[in-house]
């Protein structure tokens, strides 16, 4: 693996038992991603996008093949090591936002830092910075149920980036947002990708997302059918 390559999968296969048969959700995938990418896995529902992100995100393990994420071999990680890798270096953004309902916006964003044991002063600063980036500093004391969908997803983005992770995995982040909020959220992410040099990998079948991507990997029935780089075309405004 070259230094600039953050992620590399070799002949990655993921099978799920389906009664008597097995379902091949990911079929022999060999891909690599380098630092700073803004890429997307594109495919219809059931094509294996989430499964791929889960394995990259160390939440799941491959059935066959090798997966190297941030220098760690995913299939060999212990639970604890995987948890630590996620906590320090991987940010997740979900379709359904997944904020902790009993925490305030501030505390939701603070949570990963609490897990890391970051001291309080640094923590406060980092949380307010992250909320500034997503434009929600004034909502720090709100609860998730007081936020709109767009605001919720921006809080989730703040929670993902507050620890300045190397990798951010966004699984259909706009699926529950209207057009305006989708663009808003994506522009925020483009900006963070540039300012923080964080690598973004999306899963999506949303045209609005696809137009922002600089690399489009098409997945059908668990197979990569296309992998095209967009070579810095003008970003839509």
């Amino acid at each position: 693996m070259q230094d600039s390559q953050l992620i590399e999968t070799q002949n990655l296969v993921k099978k799920f038992p389906m009664g008597r048969e097995t379902l091949v959700a990911l079929d022999n995938i060999s891909l690599s991603f380098s630092k700073g990418e803004f890429s997307g896995i594109i495919g219809p529902s059931g094509s294996g996008k989430t499964t791929f992100l889960n394995i990259i995100g160390t939440l799941d393990v491959p059935s066959e093949g090798n997966v190297n994420v941030l220098g760690a071999q995913v299939e060999n990680l212990s639970h604890k090591e995987a948890a630590q890798l996620r906590n320090r270096h991987i940010g997740f953004i979900f379709q359904t936002f997944n904020l902790l309902p009993v925490y305030t916006v501030f505390e939701n964003v603070e949570f990963p830092l609490l897990l890391q044991g970051v001291p309080v002063d640094k923590r406060k600063q980092a949380v307010m910075d992250a909320l500034d980036w997503v434009g929600l500093a004034d909502r720090a004391k709100s609860r998730p149920n007081q936020l709109s969908g767009g605001e919720s997803q921006r809080v989730a983005i703040a929670r993902a980036i507050v620890k300045k992770p190397s990798l951010i995995l966004a699984d259909e982040p706009t699926a529950n947002l209207d057009a305006e909020n989708s663009h808003n959220v994506l522009q925020t992410m483009v900006q963070l990708n540039q300012e923080l040099e964080a690598t973004f990998i999306f899963s999506t079948h949303d045209e609005k997302v696809i137009q922002y991507l600089r690399r489009k990997i098409s997945l059908i029935d668990g197979k990569v059918v296309k992998d095209e780089a967009m070579d810095l075309v003008a970003q839509p405004s």
Binding site: G57, A83, Q84, R86, F92, N98, L115
Partner: peptide, 8 residues
């Protein structure tokens, strides 16, 4: 979600 955030 807690596990994805790095909780064991």
């Amino acid at each position: 979600t807690l596990i994805s955030l790095g909780m064991t």
